[in-house]
Design a protein around this nucleic acid. Structure first.
Length: 451
RNA sequence: GGCGGCGUGGCCGAGUGGCUUAGGCAAGGGCCUGCAAAGCCCUCUACCCCAGUUCGAUUCUGGGCGCCGCCUCCA
């Protein structure tokens, strides 16, 4: 059974399922007003790997991830571009999915939009007011955070400490600095929805409460996001559900952030690389491997060196499959079963993908070694398992590539030249192939080329 | 200041109270190859500092130094 570090208890505990065999997973999705960057990519890949692994072990995953399509940033951008906020949101959402497709990230099973749940959010806020956990002022509705049992459960910050550091924006009329906004009364020119407290729009945290409970139900299994969401976002989500007397997520996980030269990559620091930029010169599998090679809770250094390192190690796997992919597959071997067991054991230990990946590379070396010794059947069995396990991480291995007839012709001519031991001609043909961007490998089966 | 976390070899990055050569990348040597490529073998640079616990600590405890994240929008 999968054990995961729970942010609330700060302990590694079994991920128990409310409904046996089905994992209900809610991951906070993007506010759509700009390009997805490498930091988003890490989070998305982390949860994609989690989901694929759960499915690999035979579980069904209900994976809900929201799209925040109403927000100050979106409004500001829409104003700057002089178009409706929804046009901004829809454009960037489309780009978001296009990038995720390129990254090989599976679509969540549901992607609710905040604007589609405003009515439900108003109902929740009204209920919170009824329960005396929220109050309306002339600028909005606020949650009495100090009344919520265990407020700060996830950030492990006491209410007193939180109060000492809290800020109040100009124009906010709160009872207590730590209270947070549930409904914002609209300023002129802002998009609005009608509500009992005046025309306005929901605050940031409410949508995730409403949508996770609507789609996954009370006491759903797992709630995730980046570590930078622990406070205020997730503490404030939990506060609302708790104040409303509802069981919320039973387990919380948070992925570590991407760093650049040791500093957090973020929009506000403006040190980010977008995923689209990354993918211009990087195989999406390389970034996925880089992510999987680090533990999900650790910071991850992303730069040209670490990406190239991942790309090189990926090439090693592709080479193995080129070498053994054409041999007739055989029944699974004991050695391959052992590999799978070690892989699963590693992954079940708080998603220890670095150790799981290390097992895979150990098997790659072993398979090459077996192949060198001539035990092709054993090598092939291991190679098949390597491919299967990489598949569980979402990495598809590239074996032999299809070549066009011109290239095939050069390859055939080179084989003939080598058969005649005409090495001068053979080297010229290799140079021609290399000039076309192919890497040439001589094998017992003849010349083989790959990109 | 409060809270959370981290300091491992050239780089990335796991792990453990006493042989893990973790793994990957890079580097050097060898084998293989017509030459390459791929592969295999070998080598190298480690556990921030200081005390303590212990037969023994990189791993446990305490202190110090340094770093990162959150406390404000953020994956």
């Amino acid at each position: 059974m999968l054990q995961l570090f729970d942010t609330a208890t700060q302990k590694i505990t079994p991920l128990t399922m409310r409904d046996p065999g089905i994992v209900g997973l809610y991951v906070c999705g993007p506010t759509v007003y700009g390009p997805a960057h490498v930091g988003h990519g890490r989070a998305l890949l982390t949860y994609d790997i989690l989901r694929r692994f759960l499915e690999y072990t035979g579980l069904a995953v209900r994976h809900v991830s929201n799209i925040t399509d109403i927000d100050d940033k979106i409004i500001n951008l829409a104003r700057a571009e002089n178009r409706p906020f929804l046009a901004v949101a829809q454009e960037w959402e489309a780009r978001w999915w296009a990038t995720m497709d390129k990254m090989g990230v599976l679509r969540p099973t549901a992607t609710p939009h905040a604007t589609a749940y405003v009515t439900e959010m108003i109902d929740l806020i009204a209920s919170l007011i009824d329960r005396d956990f929220a109050y309306a002022t002339d600028d909005g509705v606020y949650l009495r955070a100090g009344r919520v049992p265990h407020y700060g459960l996830l950030s492990h910050q006491s209410i007193e400490d939180r109060r000492a550091g809290a800020r109040v924006e100009l124009g906010e009329h709160k009872e207590d600095p730590i209270d947070f906004v549930l409904w914002k009364i609209a300023k002129p020119g802002e998009p609005t929805w009608p509500s009992p407290w005046g025309e306005g729009r929901p605050g940031w945290h409410t949508e995730c409460v409403v949508m996770s409970l609507a789609l996954l139900g009370e006491g759903f299994d797992l709630h995730g996001g980046g570590q930078d969401l622990i406070f205020p976002h997730h503490d404030n989500e939990r506060a609302q559900a708790t104040a409303n007397g509802q069981h919320f997520a039973r387990h919380w996980m948070h992925n570590g952030l991407v760093t650049v030269a040791g500093e957090k990559m973020s929009k506000s620091l403006n040190n980010f690389t977008t995923l689209d930029e990354l993918l211009e010169h990087c195989d999406p599998r390389s970034y996925r491997l880089l992510v999987a090679r680090a533990h999900y809770r650790s910071p991850l250094e992303v730069n040209a060196t670490t990406i190239e390192s991942a790309a090189s190690s990926l090439a090693r796997i592709d080479a193995l499959v080129r070498r053994l992919g054409e041999i007739v597959p055989l029944a699974p071997s004991e050695e391959a079963d052992g590999l799978r067991q070690r892989f699963v054991t590693a992954m079940e230990n708080d998603l220890d993908s670095p150790s799981a990946v290390a097992e895979i590379f150990e098997a790659v070396r072993r398979a090459n070694s077996l192949s060198d010794l001539g035990d092709l059947a054993a090598a092939r069995a291991l190679t098949d398992m390597v491919q299967e396990l990489l598949g569980a991480l979402g990495i598809e291995v590239h074996g032999s590539e299809v070549v066009d007839s011109d290239v095939a012709d050069l390859v055939a001519r080179r084989d003939l030249a080598r058969l005649d031991r005409d090495f001068a001609a053979s080297d010229l043909l290799r140079a021609e192939l290399e000039a076309l961007g192919w890497v040439v490998e001589d094998t017992p089966a003849g010349t083989r080329v790959h990109r």
